[in-house]
């Protein structure tokens, strides 16, 4: 094979890109959520994983039971004052980089329960990347939030700014 032919065949098979884009692409398309259900929204989260909506199309069907293996926490439901320290611990146990979706009105703001028992928004204890409105949001809303998060992850590169 001559040098020209070699150069030509390499040109067809080699892409040049930045490492950040490749890592972002990989991370964004394999977001593994922690299997962490709280209240009503958890049922819709389960519905998102079933055949009708199929979160697996976006590479996130692997709900991990252990926070050590997951990089997305979907806070699906209301967070009580008693649950808040546990939620924070689970977040701390997740490896970097990690992201949080606050699913539903209760997780985002306390929703209709403006009272002593509930944390008025999960962003008081963990940083939230995407908020989903709704009580509970439809499964399609969760997919939309996941796609927004994927775009963000892809743009972040190697070292995501937390």
């Amino acid at each position: 094979m001559g040098v020209e032919a070699l150069a030509e065949s390499l040109g067809r098979n080699i892409l040049t890109t930045t490492l950040g884009k490749v890592v972002g692409w990989g991370r964004g398309n394999s977001v593994w959520p922690a299997q962490f259900g709280l209240a009503c929204c958890a049922i819709e989260m389960i519905a998102t994983a079933t055949a009708g909506v199929d979160i697996g199309r976006f590479g996130s069907e692997a709900f991990r039971a252990s926070p050590r293996q997951s990089d997305l926490m979907i806070v699906s439901g209301r967070v009580s004052q008693k649950m808040a320290p546990i939620l924070r611990t689970i977040y701390d146990q997740m490896p970097e980089p990690k992201w949080v979706i606050s699913m539903g009105a209760c997780a985002s703001t306390g929703g209709i329960f403006n009272n002593y028992a509930l944390l008025q928004g999960v962003d008081k204890i963990v940083p939230v990347d995407v908020y989903i409105p709704g009580c509970p949001p439809r499964p399609e809303d969760l997919l939309n939030a996941l796609m927004i998060l994927q775009e963000r992850i892809k743009a972040q590169g190697i070292l995501p700014q937390q």
Partner: peptide
Amino acid sequence: ILMPDDWVGHPLRRDYPVGGEVV
């Protein structure tokens, strides 16, 4: 049983405020 062990007060008494945040 429902509130954390270190909670102060008894929430369903009428002189206990509903709480939450000002909207």
